[in-house]
Amino acid sequence: MANSEWILTYPSGRSEYLRFEGSDHRPLVTSFDPRKKRTYGLFRFDRRLKENPEVKKLVFEAWHAHPNLSVDLRLRSCRDHIARWSKNQQLNSQKVITTLRDQLEEAMNDDTSPQETIDSLNKALLTAYQQEEAFWKQRSRNLWLALGDKNTGFFHAATKSRDALNNISVIENS
């Protein structure tokens, strides 16, 4: 994307393509510092974890580990513990859904599979779909709020489109 003059002017310039997220365009980040800086992502609590007994125990232990710390340091400790736990668990609901789908397909094709197994796989798959939906609902809301605070045109357009969807223009009888 650069010609030789640009490279001579900015010898430490580097470009990186980011992932497609929320758009069909790929963002391009260009930096001019030769040293790679370590950045930390914004922490957002995943609502799917609120009923997880492991996470509840983890938060309890992190909160009470140092009772003399201030509230903000205790919250930071909880956040760090949750982030570390999530990274180790590698919670990827798409993998879970794919695995459960394959298991269900296998059980349905096998005539010797008991109905209880098929029912439990269906129930587990439904739960996985609900968790995936909750994740994307939370994420889309966060993106909407973040973009809405910075861009009033977007905020008003999103509000108008939601009003249009919620509006009943015609009621028909049988």
Rank of each mutant, 00 (worst) to 15 (best):
D111W: 03
D110Y: 04
K95Q: 09
L100I: 04
D80Y: 10
T99I: 04
V55W: 15
T127W: 00
N167A: 12
D119W: 09
M108A: 00
L126S: 02
T9S: 05
H66I: 14
V29T: 06
S31Y: 01
K37Q: 09
D33Y: 08
A62I: 14
W63C: 07
Y17P: 05
Y17R: 06
F20W: 13
R35F: 07
T159S: 10
A134F: 02
E172L: 13
R74Q: 13
G41Y: 00
M1G: 11
D72F: 09
L145K: 11
E5Y: 00
T159H: 12
T9F: 01
V59E: 15
D72W: 10
T39K: 12
N109A: 02
Y129K: 07
L8R: 07
F154H: 08
E21K: 02
L126A: 01
W136Q: 05
F32V: 06
T127E: 13
A124V: 02
R44P: 06
K56H: 09
W6T: 10
S15A: 12
A2P: 00
D149M: 03
S86G: 09
D149T: 06
P67E: 10
Y17A: 08
D163C: 11
R19Y: 06
L69K: 15
R74G: 09
L145E: 10
L147E: 10
Q130T: 08
F155Y: 08
L121H: 01
N166G: 13
R141A: 13
V71S: 08
T9G: 03
E116M: 04
H66W: 13
N109P: 10
L91K: 06
Y129V: 02
R44H: 11
F60P: 11
L143Q: 01
N166L: 12
S161P: 00
P27K: 05
E5W: 01
C78S: 15
D24K: 10
E61I: 14
Y40A: 10
E61G: 14
S23Q: 01
V170Y: 13
G41D: 07
K56L: 11
N109G: 10
A158T: 11
V59P: 02
H156K: 14
N88L: 11
A2E: 07
Q103A: 02
Q94M: 08
T39M: 04
R84V: 12
N68C: 11
P53T: 08
N68G: 09
V71A: 12
S120I: 03
A65H: 12
D46E: 13
K56M: 13
R14N: 09
